[in-house]
Deep mutational scan, measured.
Amino acid sequence: YFQGQLNAMAHQIQEMFPQVPYHLVLQDLQLTRSVEITTDNILEGRI
């Protein structure tokens, strides 16, 4: 994955969860590489 793709995914998640800091979303995406998994992590309070 290149950074631009991760940034696009992070923006997509931020639209759904504007209360979660962008850098935390991006940090999780770098591990998961998945909008779905990061979204689940937010919903389950891991982020």
Score class of each variant (00 low, 15 high):
residue 1 Y to C: 11
residue 1 Y to V: 12
residue 1 Y to A: 13
residue 1 Y to T: 12
residue 1 Y to H: 13
residue 1 Y to S: 13
residue 1 Y to I: 14
residue 2 F to L: 13
residue 2 F to P: 11
residue 2 F to M: 12
residue 2 F to G: 12
residue 2 F to Q: 12
residue 2 F to N: 15
residue 2 F to R: 08
residue 3 Q to F: 07
residue 3 Q to L: 09
residue 3 Q to M: 11
residue 3 Q to E: 14
residue 3 Q to W: 08
residue 4 G to W: 13
residue 4 G to T: 11
residue 4 G to L: 14
residue 4 G to F: 12
residue 4 G to Q: 15
residue 4 G to D: 14
residue 5 Q to A: 11
residue 5 Q to I: 11
residue 5 Q to P: 10
residue 5 Q to C: 15
residue 5 Q to H: 11
residue 5 Q to R: 09
residue 6 L to V: 07
residue 6 L to A: 04
residue 6 L to W: 10
residue 6 L to M: 10
residue 6 L to P: 02
residue 6 L to S: 02
residue 6 L to D: 04
residue 7 N to D: 14
residue 7 N to A: 14
residue 7 N to Y: 15
residue 7 N to P: 10
residue 7 N to G: 10
residue 7 N to L: 14
residue 8 A to V: 11
residue 8 A to F: 12
residue 8 A to D: 11
residue 8 A to S: 09
residue 8 A to E: 13
residue 8 A to T: 10
residue 9 M to D: 06
residue 9 M to E: 05
residue 9 M to V: 07
residue 9 M to S: 05
residue 9 M to I: 09
residue 9 M to W: 15
residue 9 M to N: 03
residue 10 A to K: 02
residue 10 A to M: 08
residue 10 A to N: 01
residue 10 A to D: 00
residue 10 A to I: 08
residue 10 A to E: 01
residue 11 H to P: 01
residue 11 H to M: 14
residue 11 H to T: 11
residue 11 H to G: 08
residue 11 H to K: 14
residue 11 H to A: 14
residue 11 H to L: 14
residue 11 H to D: 11
residue 12 Q to H: 11
residue 12 Q to M: 12
residue 12 Q to A: 13
residue 12 Q to P: 00
residue 12 Q to N: 07
residue 13 I to R: 00
residue 13 I to V: 10
residue 13 I to K: 00
residue 13 I to G: 00
residue 13 I to D: 00
residue 13 I to A: 01
residue 14 Q to P: 00
residue 14 Q to T: 12
residue 14 Q to M: 15
residue 14 Q to D: 02
residue 14 Q to I: 14
residue 14 Q to G: 08
residue 15 E to Y: 10
residue 15 E to M: 15
residue 15 E to D: 10
residue 15 E to N: 10
residue 15 E to H: 13
residue 15 E to V: 12
residue 15 E to A: 14
residue 16 M to I: 09
residue 16 M to H: 08
residue 16 M to P: 00
residue 16 M to R: 12
residue 16 M to N: 06
residue 16 M to V: 07
residue 16 M to L: 12
residue 16 M to W: 08
residue 17 F to W: 05
residue 17 F to A: 01
residue 17 F to V: 01
residue 17 F to Y: 08
residue 17 F to I: 02
residue 17 F to C: 03
residue 18 P to K: 05
residue 18 P to T: 04
residue 18 P to A: 04
residue 18 P to F: 03
residue 18 P to V: 03
residue 18 P to Q: 05
residue 18 P to H: 03
residue 18 P to L: 03
residue 18 P to D: 03
residue 19 Q to Y: 15
residue 19 Q to H: 15
residue 19 Q to S: 12
residue 19 Q to G: 11
residue 19 Q to P: 02
residue 19 Q to W: 15
residue 20 V to Q: 02
residue 20 V to H: 03
residue 20 V to R: 00
residue 20 V to E: 02
residue 20 V to P: 02
residue 20 V to A: 05
residue 20 V to T: 06
residue 21 P to F: 05
residue 21 P to D: 08
residue 21 P to W: 06
residue 21 P to V: 04
residue 22 Y to T: 06
residue 22 Y to I: 11
residue 22 Y to S: 04
residue 22 Y to L: 13
residue 22 Y to F: 14
residue 22 Y to G: 04
residue 23 H to V: 08
residue 23 H to I: 10
residue 23 H to T: 07
residue 23 H to R: 08
residue 23 H to K: 08
residue 24 L to P: 01
residue 24 L to E: 05
residue 24 L to C: 06
residue 25 V to G: 00
residue 25 V to C: 04
residue 25 V to R: 00
residue 25 V to Q: 00
residue 26 L to P: 00
residue 26 L to I: 11
residue 26 L to W: 09
residue 26 L to D: 02
residue 26 L to M: 10
residue 26 L to Y: 10
residue 26 L to K: 04
residue 27 Q to H: 07
residue 27 Q to P: 00
residue 27 Q to N: 10
residue 27 Q to S: 10
residue 27 Q to E: 12
residue 28 D to H: 03
residue 28 D to S: 04
residue 28 D to K: 01
residue 28 D to I: 04
residue 28 D to T: 03
residue 28 D to M: 05
residue 28 D to G: 01
residue 29 L to M: 03
residue 29 L to K: 00
residue 29 L to D: 01
residue 29 L to V: 06
residue 29 L to G: 02
residue 29 L to A: 01
residue 29 L to Q: 00
residue 29 L to R: 01
residue 30 Q to H: 10
residue 30 Q to V: 12
residue 30 Q to A: 11
residue 30 Q to G: 06
residue 30 Q to I: 14
residue 31 L to E: 14
residue 31 L to R: 13
residue 31 L to D: 08
residue 31 L to F: 12
residue 31 L to K: 11
residue 31 L to S: 11
residue 32 T to Q: 01
residue 32 T to V: 02
residue 32 T to E: 01
residue 32 T to M: 02
residue 32 T to A: 01
residue 32 T to F: 04
residue 32 T to W: 05
residue 32 T to G: 04
residue 33 R to M: 15
residue 33 R to F: 14
residue 33 R to E: 10
residue 33 R to D: 07
residue 34 S to R: 04
residue 34 S to E: 03
residue 34 S to T: 02
residue 34 S to V: 03
residue 34 S to L: 03
residue 34 S to F: 03
residue 34 S to N: 08
residue 34 S to P: 02
residue 34 S to W: 03
residue 35 V to G: 05
residue 35 V to K: 09
residue 35 V to H: 05
residue 35 V to R: 07
residue 35 V to S: 06
residue 35 V to F: 09
residue 35 V to Q: 07
residue 36 E to K: 13
residue 36 E to W: 08
residue 36 E to G: 08
residue 36 E to D: 09
residue 36 E to M: 09
residue 37 I to P: 01
residue 37 I to R: 13
residue 37 I to Q: 11
residue 37 I to N: 06
residue 37 I to T: 10
residue 37 I to E: 11
residue 37 I to W: 09
residue 38 T to D: 01
residue 38 T to F: 02
residue 38 T to G: 00
residue 38 T to W: 03
residue 38 T to M: 03
residue 38 T to E: 00
residue 39 T to Q: 07
residue 39 T to V: 15
residue 39 T to W: 08
residue 39 T to D: 02
residue 39 T to M: 13
residue 39 T to R: 11
residue 39 T to L: 11
residue 39 T to F: 07
residue 39 T to A: 10
residue 40 D to L: 15
residue 40 D to T: 15
residue 40 D to I: 15
residue 40 D to S: 15
residue 40 D to G: 13
residue 40 D to C: 15
residue 40 D to R: 15
residue 41 N to R: 08
residue 41 N to W: 03
residue 41 N to Y: 03
residue 41 N to L: 02
residue 41 N to E: 00
residue 41 N to T: 02
residue 42 I to V: 05
residue 42 I to N: 02
residue 42 I to W: 04
residue 42 I to P: 00
residue 42 I to A: 02
residue 42 I to M: 04
residue 42 I to Y: 03
residue 43 L to T: 08
residue 43 L to H: 06
residue 43 L to D: 02
residue 43 L to R: 14
residue 43 L to E: 06
residue 43 L to Y: 06
residue 43 L to Q: 08
residue 43 L to I: 11
residue 44 E to A: 15
residue 44 E to C: 11
residue 44 E to M: 13
residue 44 E to K: 15
residue 44 E to S: 15
residue 45 G to P: 01
residue 45 G to K: 06
residue 45 G to M: 06
residue 45 G to H: 06
residue 45 G to R: 04
residue 46 R to F: 07
residue 46 R to M: 07
residue 46 R to I: 07
residue 46 R to K: 12
residue 46 R to N: 07
residue 46 R to Q: 05
residue 46 R to L: 08
residue 47 I to M: 07
residue 47 I to N: 02
residue 47 I to H: 02
residue 47 I to W: 06
residue 47 I to Y: 05
